[in-house]
């Protein structure tokens, strides 16, 4: 069965999650991968979104971190200060799933700026929950499309700390968590090499050449002594993912597209007074 690279990444990422994981989920690909795991091999995985929703089981993927769907299907919803203090800082979360704009060979992630902080070329959204997710979740998985712009020798800005510039730095700071341990890309799986703290390739996706991985990595990438070939997505995995994506797409487009929706006065005006269904 044919599949695209986003589907492949999502499926591969979903496989590394376990039924017993308590997972802090970021929006986008991490959310897709975590929910796919829940719908396939890990039905009892605990998913937590930083909006405060604990043990949530959304039917469709949320567009934002706080869609109503997450709250309605959660075991409980706590306040945001409680989420970050008792649950995250308290060390109750086993897996943090992050994405980013840039990542380096030590798993440091940048989602803040490209260029100088005070005079940025590109201002990115910023850290949000990520700096403390990277610190307190027992381990971190990263899911990112590989390109030389994204996989850089040194990130412009460390938003979320990985392994600094070598092993042992986390411990020296008083952190007992492992930090980023796996990166899932559209080309391969990378894992931290214990001796160096550096990410090396441990599994290559079907049909991908080693040269392609190097061309899309901004540092001299190394390969593990034994490199596996990633299993292609199964029919069952792809079907579950596609159904989820289809349901999500329908849910997100269910609203009437209308510029006037961007004003907060709608329920004050009967819908026909707005010209009924707006186009575009």
């Amino acid at each position: 069965m044919q599949y695209n690279s986003t589907e492949l990444m999502t499926v591969v990422a979903s496989r590394i999650l376990k039924n017993s994981d308590v997972c802090f989920v970021g929006i986008g690909l991490p959310s897709a991968a975590c929910n796919l795991a829940r719908l396939t091999h890990a039905p009892d995985i605990t998913l937590i979104y930083e909006s405060g929703t604990i043990q949530t089981k959304p039917d469709v993927l949320p567009l934002s971190i706080g869609d109503g769907e997450l709250c309605e299907t959660a075991l409980t919803t706590v306040s945001v200060p409680e989420m970050f203090s008792y649950w995250l800082q308290g060390g109750r979360i086993t897996v943090g799933f992050l994405g980013g704009a840039q990542i380096d060979k030590f798993g440091n992630i940048n989602t803040t700026v490209v260029g100088d902080y005070h005079k940025p070329k590109v201002r990115l959204p910023g850290g949000g929950g990520a700096p403390e997710i990277a610190a307190f979740c027992h381990t971190i998985y990263v899911i990112m499309k590989q390109s030389p712009r994204a996989f850089v020798d040194k990130v412009d800005f460390i938003t979320s700390f990985g392994h600094g510039d070598g092993p042992g730095q986390r411990k020296a700071m008083g952190l007992n968590t492992s930090g980023p341990s796996k990166i899932i890309t559209d080309l391969c799986i990378m894992e931290t090499e214990e001796a160096t703290g550096e990410f090396i390739v441990t599994s290559i996706h079907p049909g991908v050449a080693r040269e392609t991985i190097q061309e899309n990595t901004g540092w001299k990438i190394r390969f593990a002594g034994e490199v596996a070939t990633t299993d292609a997505p199964t029919l069952q995995e792809l079907e579950a993912l596609r159904v989820l994506n289809e349901k999500t797409k329908m849910a997100h487009q269910a609203k009437i597209p209308c510029r006037k929706f961007l004003f907060a006065r709608l329920s004050a005006v009967p819908s026909d007074a707005m010209g009924g269904v707006c186009q575009g």
Partner: peptide
Amino acid sequence: IFKGYYGADLEKV
């Protein structure tokens, strides 16, 4: 007062 910003550059800027 909390625990955070381990190794993060935000603390520098």
